[in-house]
Design a protein around this nucleic acid. Structure first.
Lengths: 118, 118
DNA sequence: CTGCATATGTTGCATAGCTACATATATAGC
DNA sequence: GCTATATATGTAGCTATGCAACATATGCAG
């Protein structure tokens, strides 16, 4: 396992990742963080100070909507995608795919060079 | 042709792209911008207010070094990678590749859905 | 000689991820 | 019962970086 991905690298795709893990089923903030860690085998670790403001932004933009669950001792804020959220997810996923293909093309000659032997 | 890639998307990989286009041969700032536009078929358009501060940062970090050419009427500042720059490029390219693979895995189910018919 | 492409640079703004902190409950170990 | 840890949400302030807007200057085409 390599190092955890730095914040600069994820900048610009965190929204996309959160929308992505919410697309299948509703989740609450803490659980979203766990899901991302699992899906990335520990490479992606979104901090609380990043996650909650991010969720509030997405909610302000009407891409997700929330529902408090106070039935248990643990207060949990469940989020799910709105129709606009689903649309945005598809659009952003497509754009990210195109971008990564574009960048990959540029990096091809660099990545083709094998790493120096130890 | 889709829309130009937004700044949020490129955040975190602009350094990598600049190092990448400098890896083959020295270039000056304005030319780097053109090279990126061409390599991306117009999708990537780095503004002057982004490019020059970026180059100064990379130089401060000793990843690139410059040489003025005042022999023509056009003052040009040619940049080339240092040894550290080459190392950083390989390292960042590899990390970006891993990150994109990771994200692509997450986006697979979303991208698999065909776009709605018009 | 006027306008545009070329070429480099700065200032100030907005955005978003981080650390550090604050609050509160559930659970496990002693 | 007490303590430490995991769970769960939140805020305030810092920092980094891409942007628009501006500034300066040259070469070349009409």
């Amino acid at each position: 396992m390599t190092e955890k991905f730095g914040p600069e690298l994820m900048r610009g795709s965190l929204d996309l990742m959160v929308l992505s893990v919410l697309s299948a089923e509703p989740k609450y903030g803490y659980l979203i963080g766990q899901s991302l860690r699992e899906a990335s085998r520990g490479m992606i670790d979104v901090k609380a100070g990043t996650m909650y403001p991010l969720l509030h932004r997405l909610e302000d933009d009407k891409l997700i909507k929330c529902r408090w669950d106070d039935s248990t001792g643990r207060r949990r804020k469940w989020y799910e995608l709105t129709a606009a959220g689903h649309r945005r997810l598809k659009q952003q996923a497509t754009q990210w795919y195109e971008y990564s293909q574009c960048l990959m093309e540029m990096l091809k000659p660099i990545l083709a060079v094998p790493p120096e032997p130890a």
